[in-house]
């Protein structure tokens, strides 16, 4: 196949630099490795970190799946697939189990991942301590000294105000007992999937120029308090109105004319699989 661009868009030097950052990230689980984030044909904040990871990892034998908030066919997912497809010619899939490489915005698929898969998560805000400390110099020092009271403080304030840890997404996690990490804005529902996951999980923040990783079978624990243990979202026994599944992450839909609400699987490819 003739390409009008380099294979996987990047020159080899760029790929090598990003892979080197990935290796370091895998060697220090949860640690944010700085890297030279490239200019991309999509705007920063639209998944450039994830895209750079994907492009530096993809090979001719890979099968790629791209998810945007659980959907395989939303604009962002389609555009990213079009770019990777045009510059590599590799196969695309919607099925989680068939993919070797999965780039995702803000969800971990419902189908369990395997050792043969890599999950790439797009990250807008890699620094879990940023809300309480503006200076990068200071947050680097706090990580070095394992001083994470600031991360707990935000959760404490939530409990005071709302009676519960209210973060709807991006609930901070402790990786292998050492680094506190922002898991990217995945719902709390997906946090437990990070723990001891057989797949390699890579997180890329293009705008903030950071790469970090959760290697396979790494212990990942969501931060919580003794008397306020971490809990995932509760859907109160609701099920998907299309496929009837319970116990997955559901979107609530609302009809303003009738006032009726119903639920649907957020992971669209999973939902389709179970359709009657």
């Amino acid at each position: 196949m003739n390409h009008t661009t380099h294979f996987a868009f990047f020159d080899e030097g760029s790929k090598r630099e990003i892979r080197r950052a990935i290796l370091k990230a895998v060697a220090i689980p949860g640690y944010q490795v700085p890297f030279a984030s490239r200019e991309m044909p999509i705007a920063r904040g639209w998944g450039t970190g994830g895209l750079q990871l994907t492009l530096s990892l993809v090979g001719l034998n890979d099968t790629l799946k791209v998810i945007d908030q659980g959907a395989d066919d939303s604009v962002n997912a389609v555009s990213i697939k079009a770019l990777v497809g045009a510059s590599t010619g590799i196969a695309m899939t919607d099925q989680t189990s068939q993919a070797t490489l999965i780039q995702s915005r803000h969800r971990i698929p419902e189908v369990p991942l395997t050792e043969n898969q890599i999950l790439v998560l797009q990250v807008p805000m890699p620094e879990p301590l940023r809300p309480i400390e503006a200076s990068e110099q200071v947050t680097k020092r706090l990580h070095a000294e394992k001083e994470y009271s600031g991360a707990y403080l935000s959760l404490f304030e939530d409990i005071l105000r709302y009676g519960t840890m209210a973060a709807g997404a991006d609930h901070p996690v402790m990786v292998e007992g050492r680094y506190v990490m922002a898991p990217s804005p995945i719902p709390r529902f997906d946090n437990p999937k990070l723990d001891k996951n057989p797949a390699l999980i890579l997180l890329g923040a293009g705008r903030e120029k950071k790469i970090y990783a959760v290697p396979p079978y790494t212990q990942v624990k969501s931060l919580d308090f003794e008397d306020h243990p971490f809990r995932v979202e509760d859907f109160g026994g609701a099920h998907c109105s299309l496929c009837g599944t319970q116990g997955v992450f559901l979107d609530e839909l609302y009809d303003p004319t009738t006032g009726r609400t119903w639920h649907q699987c957020n992971d669209t490819s999973f939902c389709g699989r179970n359709a009657p």
Partner: peptide, 11 residues
């Protein structure tokens, strides 16, 4: 904050 920093994890 100071209690958390000293190791307390009980709200």
């Amino acid at each position: 904050e100071k209690l958390i920093a000293a190791g307390s994890r009980n709200v």
